[in-house]
């Protein structure tokens, strides 16, 4: 008697499991692209023609990239899809282990109907750690750019009113939240728009996590600007301002 009472519940559970099982492959398929390890990519490059795209900014891409790469920033990838051949593998990579930018670009490629789309697993750091070489087309000589820590930023900016904050993050991130008075030129546009920056001000360069501001600051320093940067980027600022315990 008791088992009969619970039978509808059992059936409902089984149906739920079956439904979850049935949609799992389609969720995986929705991603539509695969990851490729650095060693495998190196083999491919030796054996076949493929399209290799660095989705970092142009400044970063020309500074250092895997030999033979095209430079198409993630933000401009959708508009440049037509220039990518469809008869070969497309491998996208960026400069972080999380590969967020590559993944966004890969999603766009899949949406556009491209097959054989790959993302370099763990990005260029993995490629470098594996000992594979890079090429520098237009290397930005690194300058000794000083940094300011998040906890000292406010006081530092008060003491140095000649500085203006330059936020090089993507526009949407800047619009979501930014430091008071910050200008925004996303890094992928910096090589075209740096002349918009006030010549009479010094620049405090701010990025997402502190990994990209050094190169941007070096680039601007070569253009004659006096530059500083926020150590750890907006992530460090948020962590500090929210009072979170930071990993040392």
């Amino acid at each position: 008697m008791n088992s009969a009472r619970f039978r509808p519940l059992l059936h409902a559970c089984l149906l739920l499991v079956a439904f979850a099982w049935s949609i799992t492959p389609s969720v995986a398929a929705a991603q539509g692209w695969k990851k490729v390890k650095a060693e495998t990519l190196n083999d491919w490059l030796e054996k076949e023609q493929l399209t290799l795209v660095n989705v970092m900014s142009r400044i970063e891409c020309l500074d250092h990239r895997i030999a033979g790469s095209q430079c198409i920033a993630c933000e401009e990838f959708k508009d440049n899809l037509s220039s990518i051949p469809r008869d070969r593998k497309l491998v996208l990579y960026c400069e972080s282990e999380a590969c967020t930018r590559s993944c966004l670009a890969a999603d766009e490629a899949v949406k556009a109907g491209m097959k054989d789309v790959y993302v370099l697993e763990a990005g260029m750091p993995a490629w470098k750690a594996a000992g594979f070489p890079l090429e520098s087309v237009q290397r930005v000589p690194r300058m000794y750019v000083q940094s300011v820590k998040a906890g000292e930023l406010t006081a530092w900016l008060d003491r140095h009113p000649e500085f203006v904050v330059l936020d090089i993050r993507a526009r949407d991130r800047y619009e979501k939240d930014h430091l008071k008075g910050a200008l925004n030129i996303p890094l992928y546009q910096l090589h075209e728009r740096y002349h918009e920056l006030p010549q009479d001000r010094s620049l405090m360069v701010v990025d997402d996590q502190g990994f990209r501001s050094f190169l941007a600051a070096s680039y601007l320093a070569r253009k004659g600007f006096r530059v500083m940067r926020l150590f750890g980027g907006m992530a460090a600022w948020k962590s500090y301002s929210e009072g979170k315990r930071q990993v040392k």
Partner: peptide
């Protein structure tokens, strides 16, 4: 090492 103030991927190892 790849331990960075804002890099939350390695909190345990960094500490």
């Amino acid at each position: 090492r790849v331990f960075h103030t804002s890099l939350s991927a390695y909190p345990e190892e960094a500490r």
